[in-house]
């Protein structure tokens, strides 16, 4: 197992290095960074001074080294638009994103898991059909569109029908503001949880040991909750890790749709404003969260699944 964990950790580190390299190369490919700070009226001395202070007179591998070194210290330079350290700007935005991510994750579990179990146990029933619709919509509707449709229905149209919106359409002023973005972000994962759990449950319930348990006269409830669900949860758990990570990416879109002041919105703003120092920092932080989520699931997985522990 130690080898397994070591490999995973190594992979996480290499991934982060690869991302930092991509960002570095792209930031150079995007054009001369000095144009962001200087214009045609700047003097030659200004150019020279900036060249030296940005380290652009050094060879590329040294520039990358400097970039990497300061990145490790959390220093990504000043955001061009905000005029203060990028990391500072990012840290302010993290709580909003975490809040949204957790709410969406909770939604995906609260909706996906019970529906998944029930649609497997009561196969072919009305519940199974309802689950199917939730799953199909979640896996096919583009996230940004789903969000807009929810806004249209529960804010715009609701206002037409009943005189005021059921929930705020955007922003983060009220507690209920989080409902629409969380549902939008969580729907896809609720759908995935549901599908995964349903098929895993059906598989397990068809297995020899469940049949044996039934033959021994174990009650239906115990067969479902103890024998089946425990085993069926393994793929769901794996997926939870992927979910946690990609909720991060999903937040890019959802935060833009709902003007939710988190990291995702910040990333898009940095992109739109060509704010490279900020963008680099956001991308690294996002990747870090993504990789950390995947890594923690790998570790958790090793403890739960004995096949990994002993190989």
């Amino acid at each position: 197992m130690q080898r397994y964990l070591l490999r995973r950790i190594l992979l996480a580190v290499v991934t982060l290095l690869a991302v930092s390299l991509i960002i570095f190369v792209m930031s150079r490919a995007a054009g001369d960074p000095r144009h962001v700070y200087l214009d045609d009226y700047s003097t030659q001395e200004d150019w020279d001074r900036l060249t030296a202070s940005l380290g652009l007179d050094k060879p590329y591998y040294q520039q990358y080294g400097i970039f990497l070194g300061s990145a490790l210290k959390g220093d990504f330079g000043e955001s061009i638009k905000e005029g203060r350290p990028s990391m500072e700007v990012i840290i302010e935005r993290i709580p909003a994103t975490l809040q949204l991510g957790l709410a969406a994750f909770a939604f995906s579990v609260i909706v996906g898991v019970p529906l998944g179990i029930l649609s497997a146990v009561k196969r072919g029933s009305f519940l199974d059909m309802a689950g199917k619709v939730v799953a199909l919509v979640g896996q096919s509707a583009p996230v940004f569109w789903l969000g807009l449709m929810l806004v249209f229905l529960f804010s715009v149209r609701w206002n037409d029908w009943f005189g005021n919106s059921l929930v705020p359409p955007y922003g983060r002023q009220e507690i209920s503001s989080i409902i629409l973005p969380a549902v939008t972000l969580g729907w896809f994962y609720a759908a995935a949880n549901l599908r995964l759990l349903r098929s895993a449950m059906l598989n397990v319930m068809d297995s020899e040991y469940v049949k044996l348990a039934r033959a021994k006269g174990v009650s239906n409830n115990i067969v479902i909750w103890k024998h089946s669900l425990r085993n069926a949860l393994i793929p769901v758990l794996t997926f939870a890790g992927i979910t946690l990570g990609s909720l991060v990416t999903g937040s890019l879109v959802v935060e833009t749709v709902f003007a939710w002041p988190g990291l995702g919105q910040l990333a898009i703003q940095a992109l739109a404003g060509n704010d490279y120092p900020l963008l680099q920092a956001v991308v690294i932080v996002f990747t870090l969260m993504y990789v950390a989520a995947a890594l923690s699931v790998d570790i958790m997985y090793a403890y739960i699944d004995p096949r990994i522990r002993y190989s």
């Binding site: 996480a12 690869a18 991302v19 991060v248 990333a267 990747t287 993504y290 995947a294």
Partner: peptide, 11 residues
């Protein structure tokens, strides 16, 4: 292990 959309946006 790299979030696709983010990578795509940077590229």
């Amino acid at each position: 292990a790299i979030p696709t959309i983010l990578l795509a946006l940077v590229l």
